[in-house]
């Protein structure tokens, strides 16, 4: 999972928002049954499995939906089938099988008893009805997955296996049994997911972000327990659920309450290791926040050390704590006691 924000905006109701793209690069193992199905699809064949009641499932059932037993009997089925229900997608969306209007359909392939869900390139909604005969259109490049079937096409009556042969349920002859150990078998399915959200900071944190644009560190005081939160997330005190009240300017000096020395390199690291990440409670605040400590050796950092922020050049500021590049020792005497709540 990764997330990325780009440009922020202020909305008319005073909230900072930004588009947030969340991506999940899912890669799924497919298991024995689906491996065979997807490998066959890649090789241009369609097979299903037979359930305990004799029904043939395409796509295959891994386990019988009624008895729960493994489905082990494979049945080759035809590349043509019958539409049993459909809907019209008038405006295709990103990721759809077709880039122009088309039908979604449940399709019972010849020789199968249970439908598969896919797209039919019907042209217009008038061209398709429940009962329409359709045929597989294979993808030009097949990798092993349901999208190896690009979509289905409507079959003109004279091209229809079912009407020509008069035996709509007769499947094609079974292929020779496949080797159980197919070194080239499809074992994984990549399903990248990408969704863009409108991320909103909400009204309470937006005042804090507005302050950061001006170089001010604004927290809020709980109306019940008087603790000052920085940042004031959500406008609610997480200890007592009371609303946060007045804005309180805190810092810029603060005290280190705890810290760690980072020696591990990782993807996206922006600071040279070793470096110190510390919890800092700003003067006037009751809750610590995390930031970097620089301009001193890592081994000199200690709990109780007094620090001050080093700001980026003003023209690089945004509504973000990243306006502060890091904190550095401010030369004041250590704070002897750190409040337990920090």
């Amino acid at each position: 999972m990764s997330g990325a924000t780009t440009e922020y905006q202020r909305t008319e109701d005073g909230c900072f928002t930004a588009p947030l793209l969340l991506t999940y690069p899912y890669s799924r193992t497919v298991g024995e049954t689906l491996a065979r199905f997807f490998t066959s699809l890649r090789d241009g064949r369609i097979e299903g499995t037979r359930g305990s009641d004799g029904r043939v499932y395409v796509p295959p059932a891994e386990f019988d939906p009624i008895t729960g037993d493994p489905c082990t009997e494979w049945v080759p089925v035809g590349e043509q089938g019958t539409v049993t229900s459909w809907a019209w997608q008038s405006e295709p969306q990103p990721g759809h099988p077709l880039d122009h209007c088309f039908a979604w359909a449940l399709i019972r392939l010849d020789g199968a008893d249970v439908e598969m869900f896919h797209a039919v390139d019907a042209g217009t909604p008038d061209a398709i009805v429940t009962g329409s005969r359709v045929a597989v259109r294979w993808s030009a490049e097949r990798q092993g997955g349901i999208t190896d079937i690009a979509c289905f096409d409507l079959i003109p009556a004279d091209m229809d296996d079912a009407s020509a042969a008069g035996t709509p349920d007769e499947p094609p002859a079974a292929e020779a049994p496949r080797s159980p150990a197919n070194a080239d078998e499809v074992l994984r399915l990549r399903q990248p997911v990408a969704v863009t959200y409108e991320w909103s900071a909400g009204p309470a944190a937006s005042g804090h972000l507005e302050g950061l644009l001006e170089g001010r560190l604004l927290g809020r005081r709980c109306t019940s327990c008087d603790q000052v939160y920085f940042p004031p997330r959500n406008g609610v005190c997480p200890r007592c659920a009371a609303p946060l009240g007045e804005e309180v300017e805190v810092g810029p000096q603060g005290t280190i309450t705890t810290f760690c020395i980072v020696n591990v390199p990782f993807l996206g690291q922006r600071v040279k290791i070793p470096y110190v990440a510390a919890q800092i409670v700003l003067d006037g605040a009751d809750i610590s926040m995390q930031h970097l400590i620089q301009e001193c050796e890592a081994h000199e950092v200690r709990i109780g050390m007094r620090v001050e922020p080093v700001w980026k050049p003003r023209d690089e500021w945004g509504p973000s704590l990243e306006n502060i590049q890091y904190f550095r020792p401010n030369g004041q005497a250590d704070t002897a006691t750190i409040r337990a709540t920090s």
Binding site: Q89, Q93, G95, G145, I146, L189, V195, W199, S200
Partner: peptide
């Protein structure tokens, strides 16, 4: 907060249906 119809694709069979990104409305329409 997001494109809800598209997001609801993620509750569908991840092998056989979700790769087509049908969305909730298309499924309901069928």
């Amino acid at each position: 907060a997001g494109p809800i119809d598209r997001i609801l694709t993620l509750q569908l069979d991840p092998y056989m249906v979700a790769p087509l990104w049908p969305g909730a409305t298309a499924i309901a329409a069928v």
